[in-house]
Design a binder for these strands. Structure first.
Lengths: 196, 196
DNA sequence: TAAAATGATTGACCTAAATCAATTAGGCTT
DNA sequence: AAGCCTAATTGATTTAGGTCAATCATTTTA
């Protein structure tokens, strides 16, 4: 069943009763996105958060100079959305684009508030989710400050073993904040090291 | 009363009843730390999170090469602690050092769990806290990737208007992931721009 | 299968920021 | 006031990584 991966994910974090789970899943809507299509674009009011059942997506901003800045990749069992827009009621600045044909579960903002009222266990579930996202983001900050391209790429491969291979290198380079050329050179050096 | 700033902070985020608030504050312990002293050191099991009533602190890691990496400053009305160690039960890798004589409120891990059971509103309070910390951290990532020292310093001053002046520049440089010399030069250029 | 995109790699060159080494400027002590 | 820290600044030099321009490799599409 389509909800199964999410139920599994919830059970890994908290003890929710079957009724709670049913309440949650009753509020979900299935969303299919084809490769290259957008789940979210800037200047829209964000009404949903998404759980990835299948597929691969990226979330990015365009800065003043028009440069793309990838803030997140998401594959199976990841949540994604524009938290800033969602929680602060400001228009989104984020693009969310499918890198593969993807299947998502969407939850509406109002429904989520109701869910929190009716089943506070999900308040905990989301608190734990955001906390662990916060912790990994902190690792990313430490990695981006004062580490070489080589080191950052290695850390990326460790942190996202399942993403590497599904996403082109120039997108990984973007996520790491380096040029595609630099990443290519770093990877070459790593290959040479491995051989020797 | 010592708890007042925290109560204010809670009220800004959620609607907690007087009983809930009393329950929370009953679990707090006041901690005084002198300038230069540590609230937390690596390789300890972290049993508390801290709310800053007064003062200024920094949290940092030492990397493999022994370099200091400041991950956070905290002043009045900020929470700080080693989330990773606290939530995942691993030994801390973080130093938390007082940059000024400081007064903190500490909450114990077990007490916090009990609090969440007895007053789920605080589950929400902490969820909202972590979510907004997550959002500002994301901004920091975007700032550290692909922006110049000058831009990053300006963004820092905007984000932390109350910290600038209380913390020496070489520590701000460290937080930004640049050398003290580079920050000094960037500040010089900004001064010259302002004059012209 | 040819042609056309798309992505990866390589080379030459350039620039922002790091590093190294003094020098200067303010606070605090005594 | 003299000396002593600590922090900030400045100059000279080096370097990692960016940029620009081609070339190569690989999928996709016609």
């Amino acid at each position: 069943m389509i909800h199964q991966p999410l139920i599994q994910h919830i059970n890994d974090q908290v003890k929710a009763s079957p009724e709670d789970l049913l309440l949650f899943t009753s509020k979900l809507r299935e969303v299919a996105v084809a490769k290259g299509k957008f789940v979210l674009r800037p200047n829209t009011y964000v009404k949903h958060e998404y759980f990835v059942v299948e597929g691969c997506l990226s979330a990015y901003y365009l800065d003043q100079k028009g440069n793309k800045n990838i803030v997140q990749f998401a594959i199976e069992n990841w949540w994604l959305g524009d938290f800033d827009a969602f929680y602060n009621g400001v228009p989104s600045k984020l693009y969310i684009e499918a890198l593969e044909d993807s299947t998502l579960l969407a939850i509406n903002q109002d429904d989520l508030q109701i869910l929190f009222q009716e089943a506070p266990i999900f308040e905990r579930y989301f608190r734990l989710l955001v906390t662990s996202a916060f912790i990994s983001q902190r690792k990313r900050i430490l990695s981006s400050l004062g580490k070489s391209v080589k080191e950052r790429y290695l850390e990326f491969c460790e942190s996202y073993p399942n993403i590497n291979g599904r996403v082109p290198n120039y997108q990984i380079a973007n996520y790491l904040g380096v040029s595609a050329e630099s990443l290519s050179r770093a990877r070459k050096k790593l290959r040479e090291l491995k051989k020797a």
